[in-house]
Amino acid sequence: MAKIKGAVVIDKELCKGCGLCIVACPANVLGHSGEVNGKGYDYVKMVNPDACVGCASCGTVCPDSVITVYKVKI
């Protein structure tokens, strides 16, 4: 059976750590990294990458357009 797999790339220097993508993700893929970027923001990263289905909910709500979303069928 074909499976959908996704992944996201977050520009960690441009992320403002607002957390809107974290709550938008239906698969709980994202979380704060616990580290700060050059601007002092606790940027977001994939904390549960295997769960990503590439739905792009995170990218869609990101006010700073710093998320690129990828999706494949396997």
Binding site: K3, K5, G54, A56, Y70, K71, V72, I74
Partner: peptide, 21 residues
């Protein structure tokens, strides 16, 4: 469990959402 490497997902041709030009 991932049955595909993340490097094989993150490729130009698999982009479904990106910043507007």
């Amino acid at each position: 469990m991932a049955d595909i490497d993340i490097k094989d997902i993150i490729k130009e041709e698999n982009i479904v959402y990106k910043k507007s030009s």
